[in-house]
Design a protein around this nucleic acid. Structure first.
Lengths: 221, 221
DNA sequence: TCTTCAATGACCAGGATGCGCATAGGATAC
DNA sequence: GTATCCTATGCGCATCCTGGTCATTGAAGA
């Protein structure tokens, strides 16, 4: 799990970095708002720890701009400002928690874990039409009959179902399912979509996995 | 949005119920842990507000049993116990937040909103008259009926709707939709406007997509 | 106010392009 | 050795654009 700490006071930054690394998090530190925002936007962090008062962009502004850019990485404010107005402003800006200094490191850790634990909880099942995908057991069913899928086929179907209703662009699919982050011209997705549709026995009129020409694919009921 | 308050002190319970109802939440109250747990398990609440000290089952125990039963409704502790150990115990038991009394009602409200806000960002939708365009799902509707559009048709309509009310010059359209940045004399835009109006079944009197002769086009209500 | 006319956009049809489907076969991991 | 993954290739068709004709517009002049 990757955490970005945006904090200008070197002492606190070092303390956080060390403490979190002992908990096996991968920690990076930015010491001003501008750099922090840029990093948060271009890298895929699992969580952001943001100080309120920062040189350059304020923490609040970092949060606002991040959310405006459709980035929804969990963000925790960590701040000495403890007025109710600030707390409310921070949360309204899109933060997920607001922790007041001085804080206990153990409580911070626990609040971080709250954010990082899987959102929906264990019974993660996704469906489209007659198709059911169970993340926990790694099984896929069509009309209660189990369909054996390979790892990649499963990952692709899971990605599409997790974003059911939303169009998944080829680029996002390549990045999230194949973990390829540079430009890459390949036809793998087509091959796997083909395999999926065949294995799931999707007829022409059963367009649960639709092609959006020139864009990508969608799972729709 | 339905909220269940599990709180035994009648004064606080009444205060919460009234305050939350003023914010248009549907609030129910249970005054002991056993009843609260039973309600939470059988009804579909959107959020639970749980006191720590309760007759019958303690709040902590309610939380544990709820999570053990695979119920992952957002749960906020609301408590006078403010030791770090309790906070950690509460969060570890599966709570989503832990708010210490005395609390400001505004902050509580905001923390409730954090839990209730949808994970993904607000959907980007644009409209003119009966036409609705959803960027995320890449869909276009007229009077709730889906209209299939090609990529270019969609891009053109999106561009016009993003600038609703403002006249889009042919040059800007060519640059932003077709990505052509040199002078270029073509009639593509006309062809696509024609296709759009036809597919969207825009009558002569429905001038949601107006032609500004010699300049370009506008989307207007 | 009416007429004329050039300019502009609406609309249609056909051809080029390129995307996605499908299948086969080689590389790789287990 | 076998299952899995990926590359490569050909094909069909949706999409896109061009070029043409027809309709409409608006301004100038009578």
């Amino acid at each position: 799990m990757r955490i970005l700490v945006i904090e200008d006071e070197p002492g606190i930054a070092r303390f956080l970095k060390q403490g979190l690394e002992e908990e096996a998090y991968a920690v990076e530190v930015a010491d001003n708002g501008t750099e922090g925002l840029a990093l948060a936007l271009e890298q895929a962090y699992d969580l952001l720890l943001v100080d309120w008062m920062l040189p350059g962009l304020s923490g609040l502004e970092v949060c606002r701009q991040l959310r405006a850019a459709q980035n929804h990485t969990p963000l925790l404010f960590l701040t000495a400002k403890d007025t109710v107005q600030d707390t409310i402003a921070g949360l309204q800006a899109g933060a997920n928690d607001y922790i007041k200094k001085p804080f206990h490191f153990e409580e911070l850790l626990e609040r971080i874990r709250v954010q990082l634990r899987p959102v929906a909880g264990p019974p993660e099942r996704f469906t489209v039409g007659p198709i059911v995908l169970d993340v926990a057991t790694h099984q896929v069913f069509r009309d209660d009959e189990e369909i054996p899928l390979t790892q990649k086929e499963f990952a692709l179907l899971e990605y599409l179902l997790r974003h059911k209703g939303n169009v998944c662009r080829r680029q996002s699919i390549i990045e999230n399912v194949w973990d390829i982050h540079f430009e890459y011209n390949t036809g793998v997705i087509d091959v796997y979509m083909n395999a999926l549709r065949k294995k799931l026995r999707l007829h022409k009129d059963e367009d649960y996995l639709q092609t959006i020409r020139g864009i990508g694919y969608v799972a729709r009921d």
